[in-house]
Write a protein that binds this DNA or RNA. Structure first.
Length: 598
DNA sequence: ATAGGGTTAG
C-alpha cells in the first residue's frame, strides 16, 4: 500500500518541492516540468499573473510548453498572445500542436499570423525549418497525410527554405500511408523532395530502393542527420550493404552522432546483420549509454551468428548493469539457445523469464521453445508444449515444428504440422516446399508429386529465390533462374568448373530432390541454380583470391547449396558467409558454423 | 526551448 501511495504522490511531491508562493520566476519552469495535472498548471498561471511575472519570457514560454503537454491549445494560445515579444519557438510549438490535433486550418492560420505579426506583437516572425517540419509531422500524426504532403510542398514552394533531411523523413511516413494515391498527389506537386518522398513511400519496404534514394538525397545536398541515419541503416542491414553502412558510420563519427543511442543501436544491428559481429561489439562497448534495445540487438546479433555462449554471457552482464530485459530480450536469448543446441539453458531461461523477471511468454516465445525442443530431437515434447500452451497455435508455431521435422526427417509429425499450416496459411508456398523436401529426403516420391499437384491446382508458385552480394561498394541482386546479370556467361563458366571439381573430389550432389529443382530440371540445367550459388560464383570471379564473401538470401538455404558452400570454401580457400532468413552460416575449410544444424 | 528515430518466429 505504501508503495502505491509513493508512486501516486511522487510527481506531486516533486512538483511541490519546486513551488513557492508567490512563484519565483527561476524555480517556476522546473515546477512546471514536473506538474502532474492541468488544473495545477492553471493555478500556477493565475499565480504568476497575480505576482506580475506572467510576461517574463522565461516563465511564459514554460507555461506555453506545459499547456501544450496537456493538449490545452487555447490556453497555450492565450499565453503566446500575452507575450511581449513572441519567439519563433513559441509559434512553432503552437503550429505543431494545432496540426497534431487535426486542426490543419488553424495551423495555417497561425503560420500566416506569425509572419504578419499580430496586433501589438511587434514585427512578423519568419517560420524556420523546425516550424515547417513540425507542421508536416503534426499533419502526419493526426492522420492527415494529404495535408502533410501539401505542407511539405508549400515549404518547398516558398523557396526560402530548402527542405532538410528531417522534412523528408517527416513526410515519408505520411506519404507511405497514402500508398498509390501518393503518386497522384506527388505528380501535381513540384520539387524533388516531394517526389522522392512519394517514391520512398510507394516502394515501402523495398530496401534497395531506399538505399538508392538515400544516396540521391545526399547528392541533392541534403545532409543526413541523427534521425535519418537510424532510419536508413535497417535497409543497409537487410541487403547487407556493408560499405554503405560503414560510410554512414564514418559520417556519424564526423558529425558527433555516436553519442546518440538510436544511431549506435542501429549501427550495432547493421554490423551484426552484415556479418561483422566484432565491429558491432566494438560500437556497443563504446556506447556512452545503452537502453534495452541496444542490449537486444547485440544479444540478437550473437544469436544470429550462432554464438550462443557469448549471447548468454551478455545477457548476464545486462542484468548486472541493472538493465531490465523485455520480451524481445528473451526471444533473442531463446533463439541463441535453440540455434546452438543449449536445450537445458533454454528451458531454464523460459522459466526464469516468468518467475524472476515477470515477463509472461507470448506466442513467439513458445515458437522459440518449439524450435529449441524440436531441434534437440525432442519433437514429441515440442508437440506437447503446443497442445498445452495457453494460445491457439498460429502459423509461426506449426512452422517451427515443421522446420524441426525437416532436421530430423520426421514425416509423421511433419504431415500433422503441414496440415495445420495449409489450413492457416493456404497461400504460403514455403510450407508446401518444406513438406515436399521432407518427403524427398525420404525418397517418398509419391508425396513429392502429391504436393506438386496441390500447388499446381492452387496456382501457387514458390517465392522467387533472391540473393544479394556486395562487391566493391555495389550491391548485386541475383535471382534464381534469371540470366539477366551482365556477367552471366562468366558466372555460368565458374559454376560449371566448380561442379566438375566437386564431383571429382567426391562431393556428391545432394540426395535431396527439392521441389523447385524437380520443376526446373526440365529447363536448362544452369538456370536451375539457386541464387546464392550465382552470388558466390559472381563473388569468386570479381574479387581477388582469399577475399571473404558475404551473401544474403531471402529464403532458407537448402541442403544442396549448404553442401556446395562447404565444398567451395574449402576448394577456393575462401570464407563464405551466407545469411538466410534464419541465421548466418559461416563456411570455412569445408565446415559450417551451424554444425549442419539449422 | 519548437520537428525527426532503432530491435522480435518458421
Amino acid at each position: 500500500m505504501s508503495v502505491c501511495h509513493h508512486v501516486l504522490f511522487q510527481p506531486l511531491v516533486h512538483f511541490l518541492r519546486h513551488v513557492s508562493f508567490p512563484p519565483d520566476p527561476h524555480l517556476l519552469p522546473t515546477a512546471l516540468k514536473s506538474c502532474p495535472a492541468l488544473p495545477l498548471v492553471r493555478a500556477l498561471h493565475a499565480a504568476t499573473v497575480a505576482a506580475g511575472i506572467a510576461r517574463d519570457p522565461f516563465v511564459s514560454s514554460s507555461l506555453l510548453r506545459t499547456y501544450l503537454r496537456f493538449g490545452a491549445t487555447p490556453d497555450a494560445r492565450a499565453v503566446l498572445d500575452g507575450m511581449p515579444q513572441k519567439t519563433v519557438v513559441g509559434w512553432s510549438a503552437l503550429v505543431a500542436a494545432h496540426a497534431a490535433h487535426g486542426d490543419t486550418e488553424g495551423a495555417w492560420r497561425l503560420l500566416k499570423e506569425m509572419r504578419r505579426g499580430t496586433a501589438g506583437g511587434g514585427g512578423g516572425v519568419e517560420p524556420n525549418a523546425i516550424t515547417w517540419n513540425g507542421l508536416v509531422s503534426g499533419c502526419n500524426r493526426s492522420g492527415r497525410a494529404r495535408d502533410a504532403v501539401v505542407a511539405l510542398a508549400r515549404m518547398h514552394g516558398e523557396g526560402v527554405l530548402r527542405p532538410d533531411a528531417t522534412g523528408v523523413s517527416c513526410a515519408l511516413s505520411a506519404i507511405g500511408d497514402l500508398g498509390t494515391e501518393a503518386v497522384a498527389v506527388g505528380e501535381q506537386l513540384h520539387g524533388y523532395t516531394v517526389k522522392s518522398g512519394c517514391r520512398l513511400g510507394f516502394v515501402n519496404g523495398k530496401d534497395l530502393e531506399a538505399v538508392e534514394l538515400f544516396r540521391e538525397m545526399q547528392a541533392q545536398g541534403i545532409e543526413p542527420n541523427s534521425v535519418t541515419i537510424p532510419c536508413v541503416l535497417p535497409a543497409f542491414a537487410n541487403v547487407a550493404a556493408l560499405m554503405h553502412g560503414r560510410s554512414a558510420h564514418c559520417f556519424a563519427l564526423r558529425k558527433g552522432f555516436l553519442h546518440d543511442v538510436y544511431v549506435c543501436s542501429a549501427l550495432v544491428d547493421m554490423y551484426a546483420k552484415c556479418g561483422r559481429v566484432r565491429n558491432a561489439r566494438r560500437i556497443f562497448d563504446a556506447m556512452p549509454s545503452r537502453n534495452v534495445v541496444s542490449w537486444n540487438v547485440m544479444i540478437g546479433g550473437y544469436a544470429m551468428h550462432g554464438e550462443a555462449k557469448t549471447a548468454v554471457r551478455l545477457f548476464d552482464s545486462m542484468l548486472m548493469c541493472k538493465q531490465k530485459p523485455d520480451m524481445v530480450t528473451f526471444t533473442c536469448v531463446l533463439q541463441a539457445c535453440s540455434q546452438a543446441g543449449l536445450t537445458e539453458e533454454g528451458r531454464r531461461y523460459f522459466k526464469e523469464m516468468q518467475h524472476e523477471h515477470g515477463i509472461y511468454p507470448r506466442i513467439k516465445h513458445y515458437a522459440c521453445m518449439v524450435t529449441l525442443l524440436g531441434r534437440a530431437g525432442k519433437l514429441d515434447e515440442a508437440y506437447d508444449l503446443i497442445t498445452d500452451m495457453p494460445f491457439e497455435p498460429d502459423g509461426c508455431i506449426w512452422g517451427s515444428l515443421l522446420g524441426s521435422c525437416r532436421v530430423h526427417g520426421n514425416v509423421d509429425l511433419a504431415e500433422v504440422a503441414a496440415e495445420k499450416l495449409f489450413h492457416l496459411e493456404p497461400d504460403n508456398a514455403g510450407n508446401y516446399v518444406l513438406l515436399s523436401n521432407i518427403y524427398a529426403s525420404k525418397k517418398m516420391w509419391g508425396g513429392v508429386n502429391r504436393i506438386r499437384e496441390m500447388m499446381k491446382d492452387m496456382g501457387l508458385k514458390k517465392e522467387m529465390g533472391c540473393s544479394w552480394i556486395e562487391i566493391k561498394n555495389k550491391v548485386h541482386t541475383l535471382l534464381a533462374g534469371d540470366d539477366s546479370h551482365p556477367m552471366m556467361t562468366a558466372i555460368t563458366e565458374k559454376l560449371k568448373q566448380l561442379n566438375i571439381e566437386m564431383r571429382r573430389l567426391g562431393f556428391a550432389p545432394s540426395t535431396y530432390f527439392v521441389l523447385h529443382d524437380v520443376e526446373e530440371q526440365e529447363k536448362d540445367d544452369i538456370l536451375a541454380v539457386h541464387s546464392e550459388k550465382l552470388a558466390v560464383a559472381l563473388g569468386l570471379i570479381s574479387t581477388s583470391p582469399g577475399t571473404p564473401l558475404r551473401v544474403i538470401k531471402n529464403l532458407r538455404i537448402c541442403d544442396d547449396c549448404h553442401e556446395a558452400m562447404k565444398f567451395i570454401s574449402c576448394f577456393e580457400g575462401r570464407e563464405i558467409s551466407v545469411r538466410d532468413t534464419n541465421r548466418f552460416h559461416h563456411f570455412r575449410d569445408g565446415k559450417c558454423s551451424c554444425g549442419d544444424y539449422w
